[in-house]
Amino acid sequence: MKKSELIERLAEKFPHIAKADVEKIVNSMVERIIEALRKDDRIEIRGFGSLFVKSRKGREARNPKTGVRLTIEPKHVPFFKAGKELKELVNKNTQGK
């Protein structure tokens, strides 16, 4: 499912809102999420999960093929931790009868 399909499905559930507006809404949510991550703020959505940035320290490494030493710069990587409800729901289909 791409963002455009998500917008499509969302628009179907809100027939009184124009699709163009649904698109605007989705884009503003996505923008806010990106902005928060850039500022190192967490996004916490109950039942879904949280998105946050983890910092990785820089380190010395070695190219295993050539043996050449190189330094890896410190970096920030986005991370998602699924919420309890989502974890349970995703396992419900396979385990529970």
């Binding site: 499912m1 791409k2 963002k3 998500l6 996505v30 923008e31 999420i33 990106i34 998105l51 986005p78 998602f80």
Partner: peptide, 9 residues
């Protein structure tokens, strides 16, 4: 499904 939100992941 794979849910792909452009800009997020």
């Amino acid at each position: 499904e794979k849910v792909k939100i452009k800009g997020i992941g």
